[in-house]
Computed example of a mutant assay.
Amino acid sequence: MTYRPTKKYRTGLALSLMLGTMSAMPAMAEDLGIPDEGFSLEALVEAARKEPPIVVVDATGKIKTMAENFSKLYGIEATGVKLGGQEQELILQREAAAGNVTHDVFNMSNLPSVTSQLLPIGAGVSWMPPDQAKTTPEIYQKPAITSLNPWVWAYNTEKYGDTCPVSNIWQLTDPEWKGRVSIPDPLLRNETMFWFNQIETHDDAKMAEAFRAHYGKDLPETVESATSEWVKRFAANNPNITRKDSEVGPVVGSPGLKDPHFGFLSAAIFRAKYGYKMAICGGMKPWAGQLTPRVAVIASGTDSPNAAKLFVHYMMRGEGMAPQLIDGKMATNINTKMPEDEGSGVANFVDQLHVTNSDTTDQDFAKLQYWQDLWTIHSR
């Protein structure tokens, strides 16, 4: 819901959240701030300037720069706060339950959690700016996806040159790569588990085709799915598990490594300041990585609904996302170009990255425990 809940409603929502019933009525975007009918940016700015300052949240420190740029542009005070994905979810829910919203806008990475939990219980709302529909692909409008964070398979160029040593994802389950593939712990990164379910739901045939291409035979008929079989085999192949992707970069791309790892990490780790000798594994089948969506969520009980909507508008038109583009993140606005000095060159591999289907993210959330259990059992 997009309206500011009354005290009575807030009390009901608090009970709903605390009891875990998930029964609160979802907020509606049309109830938040000025109406969409006859929308104009000028009217939104005018209404926003009459409201209190806002706090905007993202998982990257670049949100502070984004907030500063927004304030300079519109003369509206905004403060950027860096919080991890799980922290964001907890704060959004707890503040809704308490009826005391202090964080107004979130740019969130766990899309399945947003669509299956946070929006349905009424803690937050997704608003798509009407005037941005023509410059935002339809698949990124419900909910409003501001940007895509590329996560890619990468290799050491100092050792392997311009040719990636892996051409097929099933190679990572073979003895050759046992203990030599580094990834952030999937049990700490729900996006990886959600990705597994997205692949199984929409592209399992491509995983089966890749198996056939690599081994010259079909998967046994007894397997539940090609994707789950890959997860089992990969988990059992002793991958090197790190806490975060910044710990993957050094074992893949540090200069002078005799036996560098293959790795899975975000495009941000390719920044020049790290000095890594690595590249995206272009041509890897079925995909060279994934595009993780970031979704704009407005706290339902914000005291500044129009200022919150204006910040979402700022992100959705691409301009607001500019500080993050140098890190490899990609704005969904089709008129936004990547900086020439972006370190990974991911713009050249977009058609090789797996894209999330927002229509089935509720299934991703529902099967999270299944994938976590599968990983845990087979990685022992």
Score class of each variant (00 low, 15 high):
V55H: 07
P129M: 14
L291N: 01
A97S: 04
G275S: 07
M338T: 14
L73F: 04
G256E: 10
M338A: 15
S344Y: 09
V248D: 03
A14Y: 08
S116G: 08
I326F: 03
P220D: 15
N357E: 12
T376Y: 05
W177T: 07
E89L: 12
S16Q: 09
R271Q: 12
D373K: 10
G12M: 06
T157N: 08
G122A: 07
R317I: 07
T115S: 05
H202D: 11
A14T: 06
D351Q: 13
E87H: 02
Y140E: 03
V114H: 00
N197G: 01
P186A: 15
K62W: 01
A123D: 09
A98M: 01
M316Y: 11
Y215T: 06
S147M: 12
S71P: 02
D364H: 09
K367H: 15
H261Y: 08
D31P: 01
Y370A: 07
T360P: 00
R10Y: 07
N335A: 11
G33T: 13
A205D: 15
R4P: 01
A67G: 06
E340H: 03
F270L: 04
E87L: 12
D364K: 00
K178C: 08
G122C: 06
P53I: 14
G33I: 14
T222R: 11
G343A: 14
I326W: 05
M128H: 04
I334A: 09
E89I: 10
V56Q: 08
T360M: 06
R4C: 04
G85T: 09
K62G: 00
G289N: 04
M128G: 02
A208Q: 13
T11L: 15
M1C: 01
A279I: 06
A226Y: 02
E51N: 11
G124S: 11
A29H: 07
I298N: 05
V251R: 08
L368T: 04
N335G: 14
G33V: 13
N306D: 15
M128W: 02
D204S: 13
S246P: 03
I334E: 12
Q86W: 03
T163L: 08
K50L: 08
L83Q: 08
N333P: 03
A205W: 04
M330G: 02
D341K: 13
Q117C: 05
V152I: 13
M330E: 05
K159F: 02
I63K: 01
W127K: 13
Q198S: 06
A331K: 01
D259N: 14
P5K: 03
P323Y: 09
P250Q: 11
K134N: 10
D218T: 06
E158D: 07
W153I: 04
I34T: 14
F234Q: 06
E191C: 02
L353F: 09
N156K: 00
G253F: 03
P26D: 09
